[in-house]
């Protein structure tokens, strides 16, 4: 792996806090290794800013291996940058060329207000989960034996594929409508596909969708952008399944 070094220009959204007005600022960064990850490049920029006694750029990140869902960033007009199937922390600088100008912005959504610079508040996702994203079973450990209800492998696999969602919010960020239906659809699907989740399926989908609407997310118009940009490749099938679940639940709701 031959290391190369490139010089880049960055245009980055800076915003002091949630109340302040923000703007795009320009930074030059030299000698960036193409083996660096995108976030390591930002570390390097921050080190440079600190040495210049300027305020470093705040951005969310944690595991840096593409699973915690904490990193975000809208890079050159795309959620998690130009590569697909990865999060920003897995994006590497070899995707860019010497002399490139790179735009870096926070997720833009009414439901994800900016906290500072590139950091946004995604607690709306937590609240949707709290509205019904669970199976109501107490944690006694005295449930029935794990193998007493066989689950068809295809259902289990599909439930897993839906459950692979990392809750990063790229779907919302990339959707022209700021819709969270891929996120909610994935959660609804995971439980709808498993016998353990079926009992509460109707209330779950109604409650989660209600909460989703209250949070101010937009509606799905099936552009399919979320599926393309989702780092975990969550399928649109999950949105369809949620629609199905929602329609049947809404039509048969007795409350």
């Amino acid at each position: 792996m031959a290391s190369k070094f490139i010089n880049i220009t960055l245009k980055i959204w800076r915003q002091k806090n949630s109340q302040a007005k923000g703007s795009m600022e320009t930074y030059k960064l030299d000698h960036v290794s193409t083996d660096s990850s995108f976030l390591e490049m930002l570390d390097q920029l921050n080190e440079q800013l600190i040495n210049e006694r300027k305020e470093p750029i705040a951005f969310d990140h944690d595991c840096r291996e593409g699973i915690c869902g904490m990193c975000s960033l809208y890079i050159n007009g795309r959620a998690h940058g130009p590569d697909t199937g990865i999060t920003t922390c897995q994006l590497h600088m070899r995707m860019f060329k010497d002399g490139d100008t790179i735009y870096v912005e926070p997720w833009r959504s009414a439901a994800f207000p900016v906290i500072k610079d590139l950091v946004v508040d995604r607690s709306a996702f937590d609240r949707i989960q709290q509205a019904g994203g669970f199976v109501s079973v107490n944690t006694s450990g005295r449930t029935i034996d794990a193998n007493s209800i066989p689950v068809p492998k295809t259902d289990a696999d599909k439930a897993f594929e839906a459950a692979a969602c990392i809750g990063c919010g790229a779907c919302v960020a990339t959707c022209k409508n700021g819709s969270a239906m891929l996120f909610v659809g994935a959660k609804v699907s995971q439980y709808a596909l498993l016998p353990q989740g079926k009992v509460e399926a109707k209330n779950r989908v109604l409650n989660m969708v209600r909460q989703m609407d209250e949070e101010g997310f937009g509606n799905c118009t099936n552009t399919g952008a979320c599926e393309i940009e989702c780092p975990k490749g969550i399928s649109l099938e999950n949105i369809a399944r949620m629609n199905r679940e929602f329609l049947t639940a809404a039509l048969s709701n007795e409350d």
């Binding site: 669970f134 199976v135 079973v137 944690t139 006694s140 450990g141 449930t143 029935i144 794990a146 209800i149 066989p150 689950v151 068809p152 492998k153 289990a156 696999d157 439930a159 897993f160 459950a163 995971q190 439980y191 498993l194 353990q196 989740g197």
Partner: peptide, 11 residues
């Protein structure tokens, strides 16, 4: 417990 909670283990 995890299966009852809907954790999709491999099958």
């Amino acid at each position: 417990q995890c299966v009852a909670q809907g954790v999709p283990f491999a099958r």
